[in-house]
Lab assay of single mutants.
Amino acid sequence: MAAGGDHGSPDSYRSPLASRYASPEMCFVFSDRYKFRTWRQLWLWLAEAEQTLGLPITDEQIQEMKSNLENIDFKMAAEEEKRLRHDVMAHVHTFGHCCPKAAGIIHLGATSCYVGDNTDLIILRNALDLLLPKLARVISRLADFAKERASLPTLGFTHFQPAQLTTVGKRCCLWIQDLCMDLQNLKRVRDDLRFRGVKGTTGTQASFLQLFEGDDHKVEQLDKMVTEKAGFKRAFIITGQTYTRKVDIEVLSVLASLGASVHKICTDIRLLANLKEMEEPFEKQQIGSSAMPYKRNPMRSERCCSLARHLMTLVMDPLQTASVQWFERTLDDSANRRICLAEAFLTADTILNTLQNISEGLVVYPKVIERRIRQELPFMATENIIMAMVKAGGSRQDCHEKIRVLSQQAASVVKQEGGDNDLIERIQVDAYFSPIHSQLDHLLDPSSFTGRASQQVQRFLEEEVYPLLKPYESVMKVKAELCL
């Protein structure tokens, strides 16, 4: 049975990233139509530049190519590739079939990587351009969430054990800070992308030097003109047959890092959902379990974690691919890159769409948070109580021993009897502590235990987050809708 299948058929496997999760716009960027249309555009740009620099290419040939950029006979191309065992030459023939007058000058002087690699770089750039505003929107939604809850005390956790208090907004800023680093890295790697350009079979530009009869300047002009037509500021000066596969490492490393950030955020949300302090959106008709109707599973956060793990592992592909590119190139890269580049971007696209949807509907339960604080705060307040007693004339050592005994009794009630923490009640009825009984409410005010959390939130948002989001103001209103 021949390899390949009808990918629109229910009898043929289709990647869930495309069929179930990723956005239509990201799927289109990695589609065959987008790819092969870009090949034709690159052939047109090459012909236009070659004509401008004096090669015998007519206006009629150029116009014929322009008129057929979208006229792609995919069936013919597939048949040609089956016959020739070469995808680029299959599309040269297919393009030439609908451009008979231009057929002889299509791909003039070029090698397969002229269309293959340059198209990949265009796709990487455009895919990054799709991700950047999506990530900015996630940051914006979380920034709104953090600002609104900047002063809401909550129990902090280290080692997932109760620690000092923080605020809900401050905790959210930990998430935002990681995503801001990801946004900066995505922008950097996007701006650092260079075009492969017009380089020939081993990167020496020998074929173009021959076409222009040894004119170095025209060869350099050709490279520059096509690079500018493709919208790049610069091209690699040095290439082998391909652009260095280190570029793929750079791009997928940034995406993998984004995956790590999203995994951490969504894990926190899942843990908070278990504590009943916070939940992701839950639709009115949504079913959490087929057997347990009360369940409210954090399905979206779980999906993000599941896909983020996949995204983090994909960076190993370009690392290994770059390491086995012998001399000017081997074909070890080809099949692998067809999979890992598309999957990385479709996965990143999915987790950003999902995280935006989550961040637009996060639900906080202040009463649950308050109750958990009441359970733990008495123990945390013991040092403040000791200091207040010393100020009232008591002995630190005597007070410490009193607190120690009462704390152990209260802990026994919590752990052995399943009761509430009654340390404060014990202190309130103990005559030894009568000098500070009137101060206990103040000493137990949760806001006095959150330090500068709310001020940190305000400063972080104003100095770091809002300036970073400013270039994306025009796209901030787009909502994230999930079908599944």
Rank of each mutant, 00 (worst) to 15 (best):
T321R: 02
E250H: 08
I427L: 14
K402P: 04
T350R: 05
I237G: 08
I358D: 07
E464Q: 10
G109Q: 00
L314S: 12
F345A: 12
L53T: 11
K199E: 00
K233L: 11
L346W: 08
W175D: 03
I238E: 04
A206S: 06
I373L: 14
I373S: 04
V324P: 00
D73V: 07
I427H: 06
Q221F: 11
H437W: 12
D182T: 01
C180Q: 08
P298G: 03
D445I: 10
L53Y: 06
G419F: 07
R85C: 06
D216E: 10
I358K: 09
Y13D: 05
T227Q: 10
C399H: 09
I385H: 04
R245L: 02
Y472L: 15
S334G: 11
F74P: 10
M387A: 15
L423A: 05
S395I: 02
D317I: 05
D117G: 05
V368R: 12
A163W: 01
S434Y: 10
L179V: 12
A146Y: 00
L346H: 13
P16G: 12
M387P: 01
D333G: 01
A127C: 08
T227E: 02
A78S: 14
L319N: 01
Q416R: 10
K187N: 11
Q408V: 09
V168R: 02
D333P: 03
L252G: 14
Y365V: 08
K218V: 01
Y114V: 02
E360S: 11
T450A: 08
G394R: 13
R33Q: 10
Q177W: 08
N353I: 12
T242Y: 02
M278E: 02
A308N: 05
A453F: 05
K75I: 11
L258R: 02
S323M: 11
H93L: 08
D87Q: 04
D349E: 08
Y466S: 13
F282M: 03
Q456K: 04
F236G: 02
S261G: 13
A392K: 15
F145G: 06
D144A: 15
P435W: 05
E25Y: 12
H7E: 12
S359I: 09
F449T: 03
R426E: 07
L352S: 08
E328G: 05
S140I: 15
D178P: 00
D317P: 07
C113K: 00
S359C: 10
Q325I: 12
I351C: 12
K82S: 11
D117F: 02
G5C: 11
F195P: 05
V457Q: 03
C180D: 04
G169V: 01
F327K: 03
Q177M: 14
W175Q: 06
R83S: 13
H442I: 13
H263C: 14
Q241L: 02
G231D: 10
